[in-house]
Write a protein that binds this DNA or RNA. Structure first.
Length: 281
DNA sequence: AGCGTCACCCGGACGC
DNA sequence: TGCGTCCGGGTGACGC
């Protein structure tokens, strides 16, 4: 593979990180861990409150659990909730204090019993929050695409209530939570829908196809990551399964038509002009 | 109000 | 080698 895909944590990657921290795959499970302190070489990781205040509040608190909502990791504490968004390049790992610091371990939570929760973030776009009411942030998110409540019928109503290009709409976290650029392109390809189609022009069959493809694509992502959880480089084998993403000019795996790259809503967008016609057949 | 566009933050990768 | 450009998630500004 000539092209190295940078890690871009979307729902499946965040889910994988959440599970591995909860289960303690190569380390102690995070539930019940006490935070002794936090140190950071990049205070701008702390969005609300500031690093100083955050540090004061976090010392001595206990992390009760870890969950995911959209692309956010939630850490309920014995008071307040910590939220972490990994943005472009973030990763969180439970690591023994004695193991050497990684190049991008900008923020480190020092836990009891010789454990660190390390926030590695090459591009420094990640953000940490601490709130009494996490709904202040999470309340803005759209539905979870893998939840039972997210039905094809609901999706149809959601799409019909809007008149937007389908691709940017899928990326809108207040519309639906957790989908990023890669999974949006893959889901649209799998459903045979052009990225510029207007949301309220999708028929019931197309909506059901897109609904199913979103869920399948996200499920597959979680499965693949689950399979590669033991890898040193998490997200490892992932790019091998892309059908369109980053495959400009390469033949579509379904029909051999060259994959095209266009810009949609300022985002690189890959699609098959034949499988995803602008005007539905 | 809803929609589309753009700039911003960063640094790795890549092209010239 | 070294410089310029691209890329992307989320947010906020702006114009229609």
């Amino acid at each position: 593979m000539k092209c190295i895909i940078p890690e871009m944590p979307e729902l499946p990657e965040v889910e994988t990180i959440s599970r591995s921290l909860r289960e303690g795959v190569h380390a102690a499970p995070i539930g019940g861990m006490q935070v002794l302190d936090v140190t950071s070489s990049w205070p701008r990781h702390f969005s609300q409150p500031s690093y100083r205040t955050f540090r004061k509040h976090i010392q001595g608190r206990t992390i009760l659990d870890v969950r995911r909502r959209g692309k956010y990791l939630l850490f309920p504490l014995d008071e307040r909730t910590m939220l972490i968004h990994l943005r472009m390049s973030g990763d969180l790992t439970m690591t023994s204090t004695s193991s050497p610091a990684g190049r991008y371990d900008h923020t480190v939570f020092h836990l009891k019993d010789g454990w660190d929760l390390r926030f590695s973030d090459a591009r420094k776009f990640g953000r940490v929050h601490l709130l009494k009411d996490p709904q202040k942030i999470l309340g803005k998110l759209g539905p979870e695409p893998l939840d039972d409540e997210f039905t094809s019928g609901l999706f149809f109503a959601m799409l019909n209530g809007r008149n937007r290009q389908i691709k940017p709409l899928l990326l809108d976290q207040s519309f639906i939570a957790g989908i990023g650029n890669i999974y949006a392109d893959e889901a649209l390809h799998r459903a045979g829908i052009h990225p510029l189609r207007k949301s309220d022009t999708l028929g019931e069959n197309e909506t059901r196809a897109l609904w199913a493809s979103i869920r399948e694509t996200l499920h597959d992502g979680i499965q693949r990551n689950g399979a590669s959880i033991d890898w040193v480089y998490r997200g490892g084998e992932f790019q091998n399964d892309f059908k369109v993403y980053s495959r400009n000019d390469e033949p579509c795996l379904a029909c051999s038509t060259p994959i095209r790259r266009i810009s949609v809503g300022q985002r690189g967008t890959y699609f098959c002009p034949s499988c995803q016609p602008e005007v539905p057949k």
